[in-house]
Design a protein around this nucleic acid. Structure first.
Lengths: 241, 241
DNA sequence: CAGTGGTCTAGACCACGTG
DNA sequence: ACGTGGTCTAGACCACTGG
């Protein structure tokens, strides 16, 4: 029960679905019927249906009716940030190298570049107070006259401000894999056993220009990374309907 | 440009955001102003704002105004299904064992069970035409007089029908880790090197009863599992607003 | 054809935030 | 007091679906 009519209608219908009175695929009462049932105007009913639709409970077919969804339980959602989402606080970010290369092996396809283009490779080591945790390789197109180096030294996540500015145009993709470390990785991460590492590949693409802005490979020891996902929750925070 | 007024308003405002004329944090024109700008009624303007809100472009503060969002770029979404989401088709599902145990070590906390409760452990091997791909341990409470065994033998995913019926009440959680296989895992998956495995832990909880319905550990060779995630896309499929 | 959902308007009242 | 967004209504017209 809510003091707002359309929310109380939402609760009522949701309860019927949860109790099983309304089953996936079944048709709801028509909107004129719902108006009578809940003593509400049409737009109020439709606001309720809109909310239920956003939350994945209901869909509608023009000319036919409103129906209960058969929900997809296979979509998981997880919040992930290379720097904030770790189990340990990152105390040090050490810039190992910044290299301008002109023959990137294996990476050129990822960045959609021509053969003559140059790319910047940034290698950074992330450590807690005690020990190294992760190694990061960042690749992006080399554009002369762009002073990125200073920002890289200053900020753990130097792309963050850019991301917030361009966020609506950026499309990020993650791929998670496993890799057994080679000697270089072992040395840089300062361990000697054959502990496998998470290999996280992040691609950032500008959807306007269709170009890949950045490609990152992130190696991290599993004990420091928590990869938890859950079914997407719909935020009811919005009041606009 | 769309033949539907509120959609054309959405496009117009979205374009302004993408071009950078409207920046995150900035205030939109007030609703009465927007009514004049677009020559539309209030509810039409609000429908547009509603859509923009659902897609993460706009939020509103009662008594103040509508604002451009500072989007969160750290939430990734991926579609995952233990059985359909693999790189290889699963040809065989071999039931290795079904055991009723009364002292589950390490699992009892996960299932919120009392000490005297019994649980069922189901071990299954999933194989392609050529070779074993994944090993699965499923744990759930043992309830006498419930013939689950037959279903388990018949269906690769025996919980699937149940899931679809109860989907609105089920809360699924995934955790992804890495594990170096012990001898048992190596033998069952028929390989001898030290290839690390994805360890995927799935918890299924009934949100009504607050009980954990099922806990699954899924070991899979990395070459057969594709774990790709992207920023959540908002489906504009819904016509209810 | 009647019934359904989709779009849109004009207008009302409220609670909230700022002066 | 005024402007803002939040809720709600009554009524209109349209396109689509079904018998």
């Amino acid at each position: 029960m809510s003091d707002v009519l359309y929310l109380s209608i939402v609760s009522s219908i949701k309860e019927k679905i949860l109790k099983g009175d309304l089953k996936p695929g079944e048709k709801l009462e028509s909107e004129p019927q719902l108006m009578k049932i809940y003593d509400a105007g049409r737009m109020t009913i439709r606001k309720s249906l809109s909310l239920l639709s956003n939350e994945g409970y209901v869909y509608s077919v023009p000319g036919k009716g409103n129906y209960i969804c058969k929900p997809d339980t296979d979509i998981f959602q997880f919040k992930f940030n290379k720097y904030d989402g770790l189990k340990t606080h990152i105390d040090k970010v050490k810039l190992l190298s910044v290299t301008i290369k002109d023959t990137p092996k294996g990476i050129e396809k990822k960045l959609n570049l021509e053969e003559n283009d140059k790319i910047v490779e940034v290698v950074r080591l992330l450590s807690s107070k005690e020990q190294p945790i992760a190694l990061e390789y960042v690749y992006f197109e080399y554009l002369p006259n762009q002073p990125v180096i200073e920002d890289m030294l200053k900020f753990a996540n130097y792309l963050k401000p850019l991301e917030e500015k361009l966020a609506f145009v950026l499309d990020k993709t993650l791929e998670i894999g496993i890799e057994l470390p080679n000697e270089e990785l072992k040395n840089k991460l300062e361990f000697q056993d054959n502990e496998p590492l998470f290999k996280i590949m992040e691609t950032i693409k500008n959807t306007s220009t269709k170009k890949i802005v950045q490609y990152t490979i992130f190696y991290i020891r599993p004990k420091y990374l928590s990869l938890k996902a859950s079914l997407p929750k719909v935020d009811k925070s919005s009041n606009i309907f």
